[in-house]
């Protein structure tokens, strides 16, 4: 009796498991490599399918991993669209001839910084750098020091070991920060600033989301991060405060179609959809990013692009001297 029961149980377990790997959709869905967070990707794809009837699936990972994947799959891509990722990565892919050209009509009125020169990628939301602090830890550690409000304030020697910023080699956020300083202060003073700040930094984690996380749990008092990531953490209930800084730079999250995609028409429709006002407002409501399209309304807690003191950012310069800057940084700052 016992044997029969166990047999049945094992069989049931096997059957519960096997159908999972034999499921096949009839219509081949649009495949999206998602660098923006999973939550908003899911919401955007659902809305897209609802509006156009085109089924879509996504694979979420970090920028570095997905860019490598696209390079490795050259000629026979598995995905159709790359959703998200800083412009420098899209430029790199475009230089390697891995992106399809498409200028969406939805982007006709977009500012210049959100459009690529060769018509491959399009920026859809602005990411601005800023300083994040954990208010509780900050008050405990530095009772007499006012909260930092400019990049220069970060050079206070008292902060030694309490700042966290990502490794520019591994993360586009921190590389943007380096370029921010180099373009703000000029080559020479920029490097002086960077080399003065480096010894104060407690650690340089690899992942772009790490500073917000480490400040959120109160592991560190201060961090350099994207403002929207900090705003998102604050909204989730972590004790984080996002401080916009004067003369900071912004980058754009971009979307592009992978060359060799078998679903060009669907991909174009998807790009149009992502650049549309409806999609941007939906995304902004979840991720606290600022849409490139200034007609969009944004939720409370989200940084208003008009109020930011953003400086002109030369993305081509940043992209072309990346290797040299990172090599110098690796040699001298770390």
């Amino acid at each position: 009796m016992k044997r029969i029961v166990t047999c049945l149980l094992l069989l049931a377990a096997a059957f519960a498991v096997i159908p999972g790997c034999r499921k096949k959709d009839k219509v081949e869905p649009l495949k999206v490599y998602a660098i923006i967070h999973e939550e908003e990707t899911r919401a955007l794809l659902d809305l897209f399918t609802k509006k156009t009837g085109i089924p879509a699936v996504f694979l979420h990972s970090t920028t570095g991993e997905l860019v490598n994947r696209v390079i490795a799959e050259k000629g026979k891509p598995q995905g159709d669209v790359i959703l998200g990722g800083a412009s420098s990565y899209h430029m790199q892919l475009s230089d390697m001839g891995l992106l399809e050209q498409y200028s969406s009509p939805a982007a006709s009125k977009f500012p210049k910084y959100a459009l690529s020169k060769d018509g491959t990628w399009t920026g859809f939301c602005v990411l601005a750098l800023g300083i994040g602090i954990n208010e509780k830890r900050y008050r405990e550690k530095f009772p007499g020091i006012p909260e930092p409000s400019s990049w220069e304030d970060l050079l206070n020697k008292a902060y030694k070991g309490e700042i966290v910023m990502t490794n520019p080699v591994a993360s586009s956020t921190a590389y943007l920060f380096l370029q921010n300083q180099l373009q703000r202060l000029g080559e020479e003073r920029g490097w002086k600033y960077i080399l003065e700040l480096a010894p104060l930094v407690g650690q340089f984690p690899e992942s772009g989301s790490a500073p917000a996380k480490l400040i959120g749990t109160g592991e560190y008092a201060l961090g350099i991060s994207y403002l929207h990531a900090l705003a998102k953490y604050a909204h989730e209930g972590f004790g984080v405060k996002a401080i916009p800084v004067a003369r900071s730079v912004g980058d754009v999250d971009c979307i592009s179609i992978i060359k060799g995609s078998g679903k060009i028409d669907e991909s174009r429709k998807f790009v149009d959809f992502i650049l549309s006002r409806e999609a941007q407002e939906l995304m902004s409501g979840i991720s606290f990013t600022t849409p490139v399209d200034s007609n969009c309304s944004v939720p409370d807690g989200c940084v208003d692009i008009g109020k930011l003191d953003l400086m002109e950012y030369d993305a081509d310069k940043a992209s072309s001297e990346r290797e040299a800057v990172l090599a110098k940084w690796t040699k001298e700052a770390r």
């Binding site: 080699v169 930094v201 690899e206 770390r334």
Partner: peptide, 25 residues
């Protein structure tokens, strides 16, 4: 090491950052 090594750099992490950061297989 990814989570805990901080400024102490080890080879396994450098391999990862060479791949995902430098995009240099």
């Amino acid at each position: 090491p990814l989570i805990l090594a901080g400024r102490f750099r080890v080879a396994a992490i450098e391999i990862y950052s060479a791949l995902t950061g430098w995009i240099d297989v």
